[in-house]
Design a protein around this nucleic acid. Structure first.
Lengths: 244, 244
DNA sequence: CGCTGGATTGACACCATTCAATGCCCGTGG
DNA sequence: CCACGGGCATTGAATGGTGTCAATCCAGCG
């Protein structure tokens, strides 16, 4: 267990939900009253394994996580990336077994909330139920964009788009100002993009030569967010970051 | 194919929801009491266009539909397929604008239900709210499987998997017995698989030579569902077809 | 200060795309 | 009743994007 800094675990979740939905003071305090357990997870470890039937949901408080599936031959496809404030296994409330794994990409801090408490909360406060549902719907919108990218964007635009999206999401939860540096290894990028690590390396080189990305070895830094977005026709609408 | 004649529009929706969730008699009759409008849609027409902000949701009653996105150069990526009983724009309840188009792949019959009525219904009957939410979560599970396929399955397994999945879903709503015939053109398959029509044709040929698919020109018929599933390691778990 | 994991690079192979032609089914109109 | 036309399916050849293999480089670290 770990120092969770100064913030109680809920604050990230609350600020994320509140950013997109109108919540009353009662909603907020009900959310803050949820009993949670906080723990830290080492890099590359599972939060929830494929096939499990968890009885709690987790909130990512700090770090970086992903959903993934493995092929029989060991190759991995990352299905989504998650920034602090996300609840990447919220679906376990209503679908039985995990159809994928949920892992951490770097040392992270996560909070667990029992299903029972969440269900109770949502029955008492429909606005919160709607807010949680909405989270899963935005998730689905991101899946759609990734599907489009995997199907119809070539490698360079696919990479540029992923970086643009992730930077945008980092900014949206207050983790970066303008030019974000994404803590992703090239192998992880390859797993997310459906490419080989070698080809990711080549595409990164190209984007650096275009002065869109920086030359850091250990993280992807965005030099020219505007240019990067133009390069891949990135439009953040599907992230639904502003409240209705 | 389906000659469901002229049942009231709700029956398909009800049977789909009831198949996966325990619904009380009150839930059922509340669902059946929803006011709906039914209309038919000609092949290849949009049900809802990209960018729209609908104030109602639609239930597919008969036919075949898909979500899609278009690239600037006109290429299309199909994001999901929908069989009768599905509500492919349910997300419009909670996210503002459509981030994709919703179209019909063949002549179809759809019902519209006003958002207001749905919201009212779900506030009165939490079990139905949960059932609708669950629908969108299963949707997301299918997105994940497609992401995996686009990223990590080669063309032949990708096609076999799509056919297996779709056949399974047809069966699950009572539209086919064992060997389904999917009413998909090769161009539509290509759009769904992120492939070119030419390559779809070649892969179909291969699967026919393996005696997994039939030789019909106008529809994909499954000759050997078992073999097809084995060929692409299809496992229907992610469709969550049985109730918890 | 040598080890080790990741990044980088080059050569080559392969899966899938593109271009272009041909064939086939079927609805339409003479 | 048959000729025509149009959409889709089919096929071949050439191209191209991405994967694989394998070597080398580099930085951080015990």
């Amino acid at each position: 267990m770990q120092t969770l800094g100064h913030q109680p675990g809920h604050s990230r979740l609350l600020s994320k939900l509140a950013a997109n939905t109108a919540l009353s003071d009662e909603d907020r305090s009900a959310l803050l009253a949820l009993p949670v357990t906080v723990r830290s997870v080492a890099a590359d470890r599972d939060i929830v394994a494929h096939g499990e039937r968890p009885n709690h949901c987790t909130v990512l408080l700090e770090g970086f996580a992903c959903r993934y599936k493995l092929a029989p031959d060991g190759r991995r496809q990352i299905l989504s990336l998650h920034v602090p404030g996300d609840m990447p296994d919220l679906q376990s409330l209503h679908v039985e077994a995990m159809d994928h794994g949920l892992a951490v990409l770097r040392p992270s801090l996560v909070a667990s909330i029992a299903h029972a408490h969440l269900i109770e909360l949502m029955e008492a406060r429909p606005a919160l139920a709607a807010a949680f549902w909405r989270e899963t719907l935005v998730d689905a919108a991101i899946y759609r964009e990734w599907l489009f990218g995997l199907g119809r964007r070539e490698a360079s635009a696919r990479l540029a788009h992923l970086v643009s999206e992730t930077a945008e999401r980092f900014v949206s939860v207050g983790l970066a100002e303008h030019a974000a540096a994404l803590p992703l290894k090239q192998i992880q990028l390859a797993d997310a993009l459906g490419l080989s690590p070698v080809h990711v390396n080549r595409v990164l080189k190209e984007l650096r030569e275009r002065h869109l990305l920086g030359a850091s070895r250990s993280a992807i830094e965005v030099l020219d967010a505007r240019g990067l977005a133009a390069f891949c026709a990135f439009n953040a609408g599907y992230l639904y970051l502003e409240a209705a």
